[in-house]
Amino acid sequence: MAHLLHVEMLAVVRELLGKFLKPDSIRLSAKEILKTDVRCRDLHLMDKRLCVGQYCYSMISKAQSEKKVWVSTVYNSLREEYMKAAEFLLKNLRLNNSTITSLSALSPSLMQDDCLHSVYYLG
């Protein structure tokens, strides 16, 4: 199962980044993902496009329509926590580990190449 590790780590990171970053700023390769500045506001989605839980969505939508002042605080806190989580994963997951990457060769369909369509991408 070790040959699946690199692919799964990339999928987790891409899924998290997709919750608060614009789709075109989420790169396919591990090297490019590691270069992503998750704090760069130009890469972030607008507040109303940030991913929130299904139970919170209706409450936040209602509060926005009622122009509640706390909505921006919720979005700022949510964005900050997404950034912290992304920074943690990018720092601690071994996305650039050559041994783990090389193990992908055990299953050629899982090899990471920007041209392959087998790579999971949040678009």
Rank of each mutant, 00 (worst) to 15 (best):
A11I: 08
A11E: 09
R14P: 01
L17K: 10
G18P: 01
K19C: 14
K19M: 11
F20L: 06
F20R: 09
F20V: 09
L21N: 06
L21A: 03
L21G: 00
K22R: 15
K22I: 10
P23Q: 10
D24P: 02
S25L: 10
I26T: 04
I26D: 00
L28M: 10
S29N: 11
A30T: 00
K31C: 04
L34R: 14
K35A: 11
T36Y: 01
D37W: 08
V38N: 01
R39F: 06
R39V: 00
R39A: 04
R41T: 13
R41P: 04
R41I: 07
D42W: 02
L43F: 13
L43H: 12
M46Q: 08
K48D: 07
L50Y: 11
L50K: 07
L50D: 04
C51H: 13
C51I: 01
G53V: 03
Q54V: 12
Y57F: 08
Y57E: 12
S58N: 05
S61K: 13
A63Y: 06
A63V: 02
A63Q: 05
Q64R: 15
Q64F: 01
K67W: 00
K68H: 05
K68N: 03
V71Q: 01
S72W: 02
S72C: 04
V74W: 03
Y75H: 05
S77I: 01
R79S: 07
R79L: 13
E80H: 10
E81M: 07
E81S: 08
E81D: 08
Y82V: 04
E87L: 12
L89K: 01
L90E: 02
L90P: 02
K91P: 01
K91M: 09
N92F: 09
L95I: 08
N96F: 05
N96V: 06
N97H: 12
N97T: 04
N97Q: 05
T99A: 14
T99I: 14
S102G: 14
S104T: 15
S104K: 04
A105P: 02
A105D: 09
S107P: 01
S107I: 12
S109Y: 11
S109G: 07
S109R: 14
L110K: 15
M111I: 15
D114S: 15
D114H: 14
C115W: 11
C115A: 14
